[in-house]
Design a binder for these strands. Structure first.
Lengths: 224, 224
DNA sequence: GTGTCTCATCTTGTATACAATCTGAAATAC
DNA sequence: GTATTTCAGATTGTATACAAGATGAGACAC
C-alpha cells in the first residue's frame, strides 16, 4: 500500500497542472513518501490528484529526465532505486562537475572578485557547526553551493549539479546523516573557499575533488 | 519555411511511436535540418509525420530534457540556439565530466587492466589522420570516447557525456570543422591514453581537462 | 506434477475533442 | 498619430475514448 495520501498539489506553484503534479511527485520522492521501487500508476495518481492521466504522464517523463524515475515502455514508471553502484556513480559525477565549478569560480574571482557571498556562507557554516545548529548548517551549506554555482557562471553546469544535489539528498536520507557533513567536511569547504578567494583555480578544483572523493568513500562505507 | 520534408520516421527503431518521433526530430536537429530557433509546432509535425499530437508532445519534452529544445508554456517549443555563452558552458561541463572519466578509467586500468580497446582506437585515429581519412578519423574518435566511457564504468556520467557530445556535434556543424580535430588534438588523445595505460589517474585527468580547455578556446575564437 | 497455451484483465500508448492561454490586428479613444 | 482595448484566430494544455501490449490465472496436454 503506497502512501498516496501524503501527495498533494497544494504547496506547488501556479503554472500548468503538469508542472504542479511534477513538483508534487518530486517532493514525494525526495521525502521518501514514495519509496525506491514504488510504481507510479497513472490511473491511480490521476484519480488521487483529481486530474487526468495526461499531466500525470508529462510529470513522470520529466521526473525520468531528472533521473528520479525509471520508465519502462508498456510496463510502467518506478521510483529509481539507489543501489550502491548508482550512489557511487552520482558522487563521482558530482566530483567532476563541482570540481569544475570550483575551478571556474576561482578564475572568475581572480579576474573580477566577488567572493564575499561564498565567504559569508562558509563562515555561517562554521558558526552553525560550533553552535550545533543542524538546520542552520544545512541552510548555510545550501547557500555555499548556491554561491559557488553563481561564481562558476555556468547555467548548464549548475543545472546538472542541481539534479545531482537532489540525488545526494536522497542518499543522505538513506544513510540518515545530516546534510552539512562533519568537521572534516567543514574544513574542506573553508579550504576550497580560501583557494577560490586566492584565485588559485587548480587548487580549488583539487580540494573540491578530494572533498567529494572522501564523502563518496565515507558514504559507501555506510551502505550494504 | 521549415524543411519538414527531410524529417521522417523511416530510419528509426521499432519502439513506441513517441520514441520514433523523438529520434526523427533529434536527427533533424543534429543535422541542422531544424535550425536553431525554429519552432516545433505540434499540429504541423503531427500532420507531417502522420501521428497524433500526443507522441509529438512526448518527443518534444524528451528533447527538452536533452537540452536540444526549449519549451515555453503556452507558447511553444523551439530548437535551442547555441549562443557563444552556451557553447562555452557546454565545453566547460565536458571538461569536468570527461576529466573525471579519464581519472576513473586510469584507476580502473591500474587495478585490472583492459586498456587495449582504448589504445587500438587511439592508434586508428593516428593512422586515419596520417592518411587524411576524415571519416575514419571521426569513427575512431567516437570509438575512443566509447572505450573511455566503458573504462570509466559510470553509466550516469556516460549518459551526461552522451548528451554533451551531441551538443558538441552541433557546434562542430556550426564552425564547419571536422570532428576528430587537428594534430594537437590527436597528440592529446594519445597522451591521455598513455596516462590511462600507466594508471596515472591525476595525469589522465589533467591532460583531458587541458584538451577540452584548448578545444574550448579554439572553438570560441571561431564564433562571433 | 510440470510445462505450455489461452484468454480475460489491467496498464500503458495513442487519437481526438475540448478548454485555457497567447498573439496580433482592427477598432476605438484621446 | 499614438496608445489602449477588444476580439478572433491560432497554439498549447487537458480530458477522455480507444488501441496495443503486458500480466497472470486457469485449462489442458503429457
Amino acid at each position: 500500500m503506497n502512501k498516496l495520501e501524503t501527495i498533494s498539489l497544494e504547496g506547488g506553484g501556479d503554472g500548468p497542472q503538469s508542472m504542479r503534479v511534477y513538483e508534487a511527485l518530486r517532493r514525494a520522492i525526495l521525502r521518501s513518501d514514495l519509496q525506491p521501487g514504488a510504481a507510479l500508476q497513472e490511473t491511480e495518481l490521476a484519480s488521487h490528484l483529481q486530474v487526468s492521466r495526461t499531466p500525470i504522464r508529462e510529470a513522470i517523463r520529466r521526473l525520468n529526465a531528472d533521473g528520479l524515475v525509471e520508465v519502462i515502455p508498456y510496463k510502467g514508471a518506478f521510483v529509481k532505486a539507489l543501489s550502491r553502484t548508482e550512489v557511487r556513480e552520482i558522487y563521482e559525477t558530482a566530483e567532476g562537475l563541482e570540481g569544475m565549478a570550483a575551478w571556474l569560480a576561482a578564475r572568475k574571482v581572480a579576474a573580477e572578485g566577488g567572493v564575499e557571498r561564498l565567504q559569508k556562507a562558509a563562515q555561517a557554516m562554521r558558526e552553525a557547526f560550533d553552535r550545533g545548529d543542524v538546520v542552520a548548517r544545512t541552510e548555510a551549506d545550501t547557500e555555499f553551493h548556491a554561491a559557488l554555482h553563481e561564481l562558476a557562471d555556468n547555467a548548464y553546469l549548475a543545472q546538472a549539479l542541481a539534479r545531482l544535489r537532489e540525488q545526494v539528498h536522497r542518499v543522505r536520507h538513506l544513510t540518515a546523516r545530516a546534510f552539512g557533513g562533519n568537521a572534516a567536511s567543514l574544513e574542506e569547504h573553508e579550504a576550497a573557499c580560501r583557494a577560490i578567494a586566492d584565485g588559485d583555480a587548480e587548487l580549488a578544483r583539487t580540494i573540491t575533488q578530494k572533498h567529494w572523493e572522501r564523502v563518496r568513500t565515507e558514504t559507501l562505507s555506510l551502505l550494504p
